[in-house]
């Protein structure tokens, strides 16, 4: 069963679409990354998955349940961490934990204590006095101590220094290794995507541009380049995502639906970063006012 499944999911804020016609199915057991520019709809999607916001139209199911109206039963099974990482600033760490224990029936106090201990945070510390990185770690620990089946994290490592972000991500990966927790997180750090994620969702202009297993994403994209491209046709079944040309040659980043058996183009394998960047660039270049943003256009032929 998918952890998050949406069908034609849309959310309107006044006259503006926060999310438009999103259909998605993230399999269980994955660490899925949501990437896309600010305002692409990542937080809107995550908030609806966490049951904090109601769809304008379309459907969303989380762990097989409708998030809104099913609040109590689903709340136990999902851990959600907001971008703002809400903590009670005046509380001590152990007070935050006792609060967590009181509000979550599946709370595991041993997990909570072990994790902060390993991170060098004292239970007596006041949230106010912790560094940004430690606050993020405490916030994540609270999510983990609930022992959820699914973690929904909105930019969990944003604004952290490199060591703090690594500690945080390792804590998360350890959880995945030990409990098999599914994770859906949004991030701007492309470097993290390749190392910790195995499912990728690219969003732009309030909709989903690409969603697939990370390995398949890399396998289905190639650079095609040629020195004198005029009159040359692109192989069958490819969609151009990005074009780079100089006076001498041209290079296309293409998505393929069939294996390439073309001998006239020089074919190289792109890195994951290059693929993601190409989609994000494509999103920036296409007009944001377009009400119907199709996934990359087929500008197949070369004039």
């Amino acid at each position: 069963m998918p952890v998050i499944e949406t069908n034609g999911l849309s959310k309107r804020f006044g006259r503006k679409w926060g999310l438009r016609d999103c259909s998605l199915s993230i399999p269980a057991g994955k660490v899925a990354a949501l990437v896309g520019p600010n305002g692409a709809g990542k937080s809107t999607l995550l908030r609806m998955a966490a049951g904090l916001s109601r769809p304008t139209s379309g459907e969303i199911n989380v762990l097989g349940e409708v998030p809104i109206g099913n609040g109590a039963s689903l709340l136990k099974r999902v851990g959600y961490l907001d971008q703002e990482r809400p903590l009670y600033r005046g509380f001590r760490v152990d007070e935050m934990f006792r609060f967590g224990e009181g509000t979550n029936p599946t709370w595991n106090m041993t997990t909570a204590h072990t994790y902060v201990e390993q991170l060098g945070i004292s239970l007596r510390d006041r949230v106010n006095n912790l560094s940004g990185g430690q606050q993020a770690q405490v916030a994540l620990t609270i999510c983990l101590a609930k022992q959820p089946e699914l973690l929904i994290l909105d930019e969990p490592a944003a604004e952290l220094d490199p060591v703090a972000r690594e500690d945080l991500l390792r804590l998360l990966m350890r959880e995945v290794a030990e409990r098999g927790t599914s994770v859906v997180l949004s991030t701007h750090a492309l470097g993290d995507v390749g190392s910790i994620c195995d499912y990728l969702v690219i969003m732009s202009h309030s909709t989903i541009v690409l969603a697939d297993d990370l390995e398949f994403v890399v396998e289905s994209h190639r650079f095609l380049s040629a020195t004198s491209p005029s009159g040359r046709e692109l192989p069958e079944g490819v969609t151009v995502i990005d074009t780079r040309s100089s006076s001498r040659d041209v290079t296309y980043l293409v998505r393929m639906t069939l294996p390439l058996v073309d001998e006239t183009w020089e074919i190289t394998e792109p890195t994951l970063d290059e693929i993601i960047m190409a989609y994000l660039r494509l999103a920036r270049e296409s007009p944001s006012t377009s009400s119907r943003h199709e996934s990359p256009s087929t500008q197949g032929q070369i004039s």
């Binding site: 660490v31 990966m173 993290d192």
Partner: peptide, 15 residues
């Protein structure tokens, strides 16, 4: 073990 590896490097256990 996979658990050990994820404490050595920041990596997805499935990987």
């Amino acid at each position: 073990s996979v658990r050990q590896v994820v404490t050595q490097v920041t990596i997805n256990p499935n990987t």
